[in-house]
Design a protein around this nucleic acid. Structure first.
Lengths: 195, 195
DNA sequence: GATAAAGTCGAACCATGGTTCAGCTTACTT
DNA sequence: AAGTAAGCTGAACCATGGTTCGACTTTATC
């Protein structure tokens, strides 16, 4: 269905190299890296990038999809642990903590979190993430650990603006503050050290 | 002290026009407007901008200072109303609601909120804002309306990432979610309609 | 191994946007 | 009123970064 035409042997090889380099570069320097830098890192000329991806936006989008997929995998794993008897609230906070920590290191993840709520091309993986998150939310709510009217959109809304360019303690503090608003037990939900 | 040299009559006039145009343009299109656009709006050539401000960054910084000053005025006014018998929590939430609403319309305010926590040149006005906010916080805490360990830095942290490119209802929802985490009464603090 | 199609190369193109500066105009001085 | 320095002008400069395209090379086919 999404079969273009049979690619030549070196073409497939280059495509892989390009995607790998793009992933690496975007991770390190964010989606604003130059095409030249990606090309150099891939050991390929710029023109080759444009043979595989019509525009820079498309290339970056392809990389982003991978990261959204990774996020989706993470939530689904958390869901699995809940099904195996884990506490939903703990898995939820654990996931969010991992997400915020990843966003700090990884410029691409940062950009990806900002894209989650809005205009994505990666319907499939985002849907996976959303349904798994919805599942987690529902369970946490019936456990009485999460305010009953919190929705998936709410989580996306809060985490679309994770602070990244700051010391780790600041990020931890931010998570603490946000979790206060989600947990009906009030301060009870706090397991991170303040300030 | 900060006296350069006596400016010529038309120079002062142009300086005002430039600052006015810059304010207007930055408000409308954010700090990324071109120098040309500011110049045109001021009825002046680009070169004139550079006679008054050595670099674009300096010009934008000058405009930002005005906005920080405006924010500082707002909090100080709120402080005044508290001194006159107003409830600190109400004034605090009122201020935050105004801030978030302004940030939505005003690209400059949006940028200003993101600058509040970090690397500012406008020590004076930021200090005014900080002390007034600290005052408000202290009062709200002794009223029992605000969690006791919330600091000025916490408020800056939360509001450094106000969502702006979204419908008004989303902004309202965001404020609601954040306030949940600040108010020890839990849902009691909610006076905004959900979703 | 010869031929054509597919792929690659990279210098050149183009658009954007901050910054400069040589020549002209204007406001103050005497 | 003349002189001079301060101020203004805007075309040109430069750096950045995405995109194109004609010449060249490689893969696959016969």
């Amino acid at each position: 269905m999404t079969e273009g035409r049979t690619l030549r042997a070196d073409a497939v090889r280059n495509r892989k190299k390009i995607l790998a380099a793009a992933r690496e570069q975007v991770t390190a320097h964010g989606p604003d890296v130059g095409m030249d830098e990606i090309a150099t890192a891939a050991g390929v000329a710029v023109g080759t990038l444009y043979r595989h991806f019509p525009t820079k936006t498309d290339l970056v989008a392809a990389v982003m999809e991978e990261f959204v997929a990774r996020i989706a995998d993470d939530i689904e794993a958390a869901c699995g642990r809940v099904a195996a008897g884990g506490r939903a609230w703990d898995e939820l906070t654990g996931f969010l903590a991992r997400l915020i920590e990843a966003a700090a290191t990884d410029q691409a993840i940062k950009a990806a979190t900002q894209t989650l709520g809005a205009v994505p091309d990666d319907k499939a993986d985002e849907d996976r993430a959303s349904t798994a998150l919805a599942n987690l939310i529902r369970t946490a709510q019936s456990d009485g650990d999460l305010h009953p009217d919190i929705s998936v959109a709410d989580i996306y809304l809060l985490f679309s603006s994770v602070p990244t360019d700051c010391p780790p303690t600041t990020r931890t503090r931010w998570l603490t503050l946000v979790l206060f608003g989600l947990n009906p037990h009030g301060r009870a939900g706090d397991r991170t050290s303040a300030r």
